[in-house]
Amino acid sequence: MISEDDVKKVAALSRIHLTEEEIPQFTKNLESILTYIEKLNELDVADVEPTSHVVPLENVHREDVVKPLLSQKEALSIAVEKQDGGFKVPKVIE
């Protein structure tokens, strides 16, 4: 079953910082849900095709014509921080 180390790993993959106190609590929650999900092991699905989508979709294309879109100003109106017409983020390369 899921261990505290697994939860630390999955939190890192999820980009969520957990405190030391939160790790056992989330481990317990996730374990109870995963135990419930084990129920699916009762079924033999070896020959069943997976359904990722209920609508039989084919590629949907649009015509290659220029249409009005959000302006740079409108797009940046929601920015937390901006600089020189771009979204500003913390320094990536130290």
């Binding site: 069943v48 359904t51 990722s52």
Partner: peptide
């Protein structure tokens, strides 16, 4: 497995 049970 979830996607397969979804088919069922």
């Amino acid at each position: 497995k979830g996607l397969k049970v979804r088919s069922l």
